[in-house]
Design a protein around this nucleic acid. Structure first.
Lengths: 342, 342
DNA sequence: CTATTTCACGAAAACGTTTTCGTTAATTTC
DNA sequence: GAAATTAACGAAAACGTTTTCGTGAAATAG
């Protein structure tokens, strides 16, 4: 019932706790004979070192924290998968917390993780987060912090991102290249840096091609749980108000799929009447009809890179080397499908 | 840099560590005056109790483990959300591990969690898991274990499931009720208990209606990463071999969506030529065209119920009450959409 | 054969809490 | 005013490791 300890093994073997500990860790000052005896008894008793005690002693937990705005989300779940896969390889456990895009919750969760004495933290911040005190707390405690996807530019730590502006330019340029003359944009929340960057990319592409920017053609979506509905609603508004629009770049795939559905319901043909480009490359986008042209956002790779960076910083700290922060920008690519012309 | 400890607070206040500890926890044998002093200093120093030390002392970690076959999965990510939401409410942290449907990995992960001294474990087992020694280890260590969705019937612990057989009967019955005369089934892996149960439900519905069971109409899908492709391939085979089939009940939505795509490519009309029912009610199923009739599998509720059960068992143990295991069966429902006739 | 080195092990402190049990001083009781 | 109670605090053990530093005994060196 109660767990096996070093002391119990020591007693049965009539040796000391220190020797047992050292035997299990192959210290050179333990004879092969006792090592064998100890290891054998340890396995037969199914000994498992008590992580609390080890952590307390070594001041390391081999555990990291991960705070993410949402779990039920194709992109984020891919990120998680990337992180977990890497963490597993390096022998780290991951405590996952969901901030629900709430600053207050995020703050509380950082506190929880610090109490838990995790070795480091990975975070994609909530849209509502405007204060970064909780995050600089992490840094000032000397714990590595790596932000990904939704980052705070002001914070001095490593970051893993994509180039939202460039990706948005690519998306919009593709609409222009395939003959669209009047291009709308469904943007995300006003406070989300990613949405802002994608919006800027959209405008840049217009400017680069001497298209007139018309703020009437920009619709705002919250991109929360009702993304699909938002896409439908805005698509309907768009069609009613602006008959001349023949292309739309949409902040996220789910909203875009809502738009596609609305267009289909209204008899607006895609891409003949209007071309659509989404953002993220959710799996869904490849199987709907018409399939959605979109920007591939490499979630798995982002997660992988984020953990790797955290891991290097952990090693740097451990070896008393200077910790160097990196900003890693991963490539996106335009996936051409049936919702745009060739 | 280094963390604040009770000792540091004690020294600054010229009192003992014990008093500081008790003051922070509002012990009655500490004067209000010192309590106030201690608490004030604690907050200004930003004191955070060292979880390792607390856990070591109290033999509780307020942490649970969660092992799940896959993260990038609409159903499972909903389960996770349900678990995290409840855990947060009760002040528990969750370490998430992904078994990738591998028994070996699952075994290793259980071991990791036990070393970590989590208070309890939630698990949905891998398809390849046939031995349950690692799971009974958990139980014999006196730690609560709650299985959900993919369970081992043989194990004496609490379980949260749906009634796969009934759900499959409902799905098949709906095909029969809407006029299908010859009904195929795309089943899941031979080793997966859920697949087996759904297959049995399919057969039961046929029998109940005096339909002949024809093993030629049953196709096997692995339901792994290439579910969509499997759906396409099997749908093509089905159409080529059995022109007379007018309905198909498919083990999971993703495979069903692959089938829908293949039917569309081959000019087979859904539901006029063939009706399709899926399983799980992934979000995607509502937005494709034709939208997919399917069985709703309440992931969020399952996660919520699983954590709640774990929590009650935790409390029961703590209060030295007898731990009672429960099998909780959550309701599924048929969601009628456009892939079946009315 | 003494002096040094190597070998194999153990004692003990430390990590930061929690909690039991004293202990002293102040207060109350009769 | 002596006896009993209460109030407020501290000492110390314990949780299970890890690791440093001794310490004898055995092996080697001169």
């Amino acid at each position: 019932m109660s767990q096996v300890t070093l002391l119990q093994i020591a007693d049965k073997l009539k040796i000391s706790v220190s020797t047992v500990s050292k035997a299990l860790k192959d210290y050179p000052d333990v004879s092969e004979k006792t090592k064998a005896l100890v290891k054998e008894l340890a396995t037969t008793l199914n000994y498992k070192p008590n992580a609390f005690a080890v952590n307390l002693r070594t001041k390391e937990s081999k555990t990291i924290g991960l705070i993410i705005p949402a779990i039920v989300h194709h992109f984020f779940s891919n990120v998680i998968k990337g992180i977990l896969t890497q963490a597993e390889k390096k022998g780290y456990l991951v405590i996952i917390l969901q901030s629900n895009e709430s600053y207050e919750l995020e703050k509380k969760q950082i506190d929880l993780l610090l109490r838990q004495r995790v070795d480091g933290i990975l975070i994609s911040i909530a849209n509502s987060t405007r204060n970064f005190g909780h995050l600089s707390d992490v840094l000032s405690q000397g714990k590595p912090l790596v932000m990904f996807d939704k980052i705070a530019k002001i914070l001095e730590c490593s970051k893993v991102v994509i180039d939202d502006r460039k990706a948005a330019r690519d998306a919009t340029q593709h609409l222009i290249d395939t003959g669209c003359k009047r291009i709308a944009h469904f943007r995300g929340p006003l406070l989300s840096q990613n949405s802002i960057d994608r919006f800027i990319g959209y405008r840049e592409a217009l400017e680069n091609n001497n298209y007139v920017y018309d703020s009437d053609l920009v619709y705002i979506c919250e991109c929360g749980d009702s993304s699909f509905e938002e896409g439908k609603i805005n698509a309907k508004k768009l069609v009613q108000k602006h008959k001349d629009v023949d292309g739309v770049f949409i902040n996220t795939d789910l909203v875009a799929i809502g738009a596609l559905t609305a267009f289909s319901e209204m008899g607006v043909r895609v891409p003949d009447d209007i071309s659509v480009v989404g953002f993220s490359n959710w799996f869904m986008s490849s199987v709907i009809s018409p399939s959605l042209t979109t920007i591939n956002q490499p979630g798995y790779k982002i997660g992988k890179a984020a953990f790797k960076q955290l891991y290097t910083e952990l090693k740097q700290r451990k070896n008393n080397l200077p910790v160097v922060h990196k900003k890693i920008t991963l490539n996106t690519e335009l996936i051409k499908r049936a919702s745009t012309k060739v």
